[in-house]
Design a protein around this nucleic acid. Sequence first.
DNA 1: ATATCATATTAGACATAATCTAAATTTTTC
DNA 2: GAAAAATTTAGATTATGTCTAATATGATAT
Lengths: 141, 141
Amino acid sequence: MDAVAIKRSLAGGRLRCTPQRYAVMAFLMEHGGHPTAAEIFEAVNRVDPRSSRATTYNNLRDLVKAGLVREVAVEGRAARFDAKGMRHHHFICDRCGNVEDMEWYDVPRPTSGSLGRRIVRECELIFRGLCTKCGPRHASR
Amino acid sequence: MDAVAIKRSLAGGRLRCTPQRYAVMAFLMEHGGHPTAAEIFEAVNRVDPRSSRATTYNNLRDLVKAGLVREVAVEGRAARFDAKGMRHHHFICDRCGNVEDMEWYDVPRPTSGSLGRRIVRECELIFRGLCTKCGPRHASR
DNA sequence: ATATCATATTAGACATAATCTAAATTTTTC
DNA sequence: GAAAAATTTAGATTATGTCTAATATGATAT
């Protein structure tokens, strides 16, 4: 992954490029999946054990605030994170909780009447069901 | 709220009608909002202090499993619950975390190509932004 | 009505995920 | 280089939810 692209992302979010923050962002951009904070912390420290747990959480929060990273809450499990690259929707497996990307497509907005005075910033689509691994073929019980 | 309707719901989900479970279901059907497990536990026990915390969690889990209640995960906050009445989408406030119902409308499904071998059970739309209370008028800072 | 038994409840311990604190460090600015 | 601002850190703390194993109960068949 291009180090310059990562630094540019951080700069775009007006975040200093510290080694710890860089490592988190780089991991998310390279990983492609939807790791939990604990997985990110572990992965980042396996390479270069200089980051604390609190820092990983701090940086994830900063990255989310800056709009560079998305946090996906999953019922009964730790939150997942992914770098906002191309727009996409999410699929969440009922059984294993894994989060997968789904092709982006535009979603019709609600009527302004039903919006009231709410300000809608974004609109996301979440599909739920069984992932390939957990499907009928493989589901044990 | 009609006690018979509540009992019928539980029976429909093949769940025994215990006083504790009835109280949780009744509260959700009457409340209309999106309370947390802690709020449900407190409300139910204020009326009739016979339910333990574990039971409230057990019952919520059973009700969700049975498809009578929906659990909504909110980033960084406790999960919210609502009785599945009329179909609806959800709005989640970025600032206060409150969950509100939004008018239902059909959402186009993804192309079968992008689905792969996933089995999609449902598809929900989540709007994010600022609720009426937290909007620009009222937002402090 | 009563016995039966799978199901449900309970208190409190435990687990997990995430945040907070306050001191130390690093980076930026002047 | 001094001062200010942002960041990092270890560990304590909080919040949320689950587990255990003993006890009680609702639904069913008799």
